[in-house]
Amino acid sequence: MSSQGFATVKFFITKKRVAKNLFAYLMLAPDIIGFAIFIFIPVGIALYVSLHEWNGLSPMKFIGLRNYVTLVSDSLWWHSVGITIVYALMFVPMIYCSSLLIAVFLNSITGKIQGFLRVIYFVPFTVSTIVLSIIWLFMLDPRRGLVNDFLHIFGISAQSFLGNSKQALFCIAFITAWTLIGYYSIIFLAALKDIPVIYYEAAKLDGANAFQLFKSITFPMLKEVNLFVLVVTIIASFQVFDQVKVMTSGGPAGATNVAVFYIYTNAFDYLKLGYSSALAFVLFVIMFVFSMLLLKITGGGARE
């Protein structure tokens, strides 16, 4: 090959590369522009606000990093972060395991009955937070609720549930999981359907039992979806808020005062918009570190 020919090839490659990059960014452009305007700019403003004292009514007052210094010694804040982590430790395994199990279960039955059960499990996901909170307040009412009536059959005395500082957080996790399980099991199901049957047939010929099949085929083949569900539910558990606001307002005795609720209280009850922004950025960093660790451990969920 002459040196001239070599140069042409090189040029060709670079041009192709430019086109490739251009195409990729064109595909990303609509969303990137959207993020830039409706998330990055507001985040930038919030970052600016976090360096100020501002109640939304009077002009902002620049105070440098004082909000961040204050939050280091804000014991209520770190307590709420602790509650959030406990919540995540309850919520994430609960939703992950049950939706995966339900998906595997659904996948093992066939025909109309599968479709029927799918729809039933999915129904809670369609209900709005306000309405679903009202129904669960009904269900868990200490005196007249259905759940206590049910426990009564087994001789268990009436529980306060959302009115008990030891049970309330678990109840919130359970209710939130209840709404989402049907939805996440459908995501798992969609992924399960894509695993070629041939893999199972081959393993069965080797005499593998159901558990081995799950361990050596199903689970590894779900790698991408696993990562998605884990990352998304961890982030969601760190941001739990709506149910807390409607059902417990952080109580009883602060037992459900999760981080975002504390941020919300600071912003919209105390009108400390600067301080609440600072808190939110710290929460963001905590979540970011968690998620990056998860991505690192799982290799970003990309298949080799």
Partner: peptide
């Protein structure tokens, strides 16, 4: 990672800036 990071921003913190925007 930038895109994924946007998931981690609590909505209550960008509520006021987004409203102003």
């Amino acid at each position: 990672i930038l895109i994924l990071g946007t998931l981690m921003i609590p909505f209550s913190v960008i509520l006021v800036p987004l409203f102003i925007l």
